[in-house]
Design a protein around this nucleic acid. Sequence first.
DNA 1: TGCTTTATCAAGCGTCAACTTGAGTAAGCA
DNA 2: TGCTTACTCAAGTTGACGCTTGATAAAGCA
Lengths: 115, 115
Amino acid sequence: MNGTLEAEQLDALFMALGDRTRRDIVARLSAGEATVKELAERYDMSMQAVSQHIQVLERSGLVSRGRHRQTRPCRLEPGRLEAAASWIEQSRRVWAERMDQLEARLAHLQDGEGR
Amino acid sequence: MNGTLEAEQLDALFMALGDRTRRDIVARLSAGEATVKELAERYDMSMQAVSQHIQVLERSGLVSRGRHRQTRPCRLEPGRLEAAASWIEQSRRVWAERMDQLEARLAHLQDGEGR
DNA sequence: TGCTTTATCAAGCGTCAACTTGAGTAAGCA
DNA sequence: TGCTTACTCAAGTTGACGCTTGATAAAGCA
């Protein structure tokens, strides 16, 4: 389990995080489970709208749902957050390595050893 | 400069990363600058299409463009990648803290000290 | 058994995103 | 001066997104 996903899954993941309401739901769920009704009240939004947001989050793998009486409590699946962070780190690392090399070559030149 | 952005900027940022071509452009630019034409050849795509992707990335703050002869070389601005990573880390941290607390309470109960 | 609560399904509406084509601009070259 | 290269602008098409309304399902309660 190294957090690496297919392009389609990354599409769904970053697309899900591209909506402010869904990002807030993720942040809210990081502190514990919540029901559709609770989220609808929190965002002053219809339950249908929240339900659709949850479905997007579920498709992205960020959220899963259980069953408890009439409710469908939503909980965060942090594995996908790790996958997103992992993708970002990959590009940041490549960039940082290149910058280090550029710096080293610049220092080399300033030592008067450039051709 | 702590990498924290407004909701609108995060919308643009994650939305920009929600497209596979744009993610690949970001990964490509992490290894160095590229022109619109080079990217169009790489993805077998019209220059207009690439130009529009670059505009999206520019609006998100992930990419900036210079001028060199007839070309507009694109380069990565890693600050926004850090901002995205930072947002993700925030939720992951909250979740991890809660998990630690739940574990501690479970251990407590198993020691026979539960109410 | 009906009534309420919680949530989903389905259809429709307005907006925006991704790409296309065609035209236009700006820089370098012959 | 024309011609090519690299790129952008503008308009149009197609499809997806976010939300709404109305109907429906499933569980608990009186």
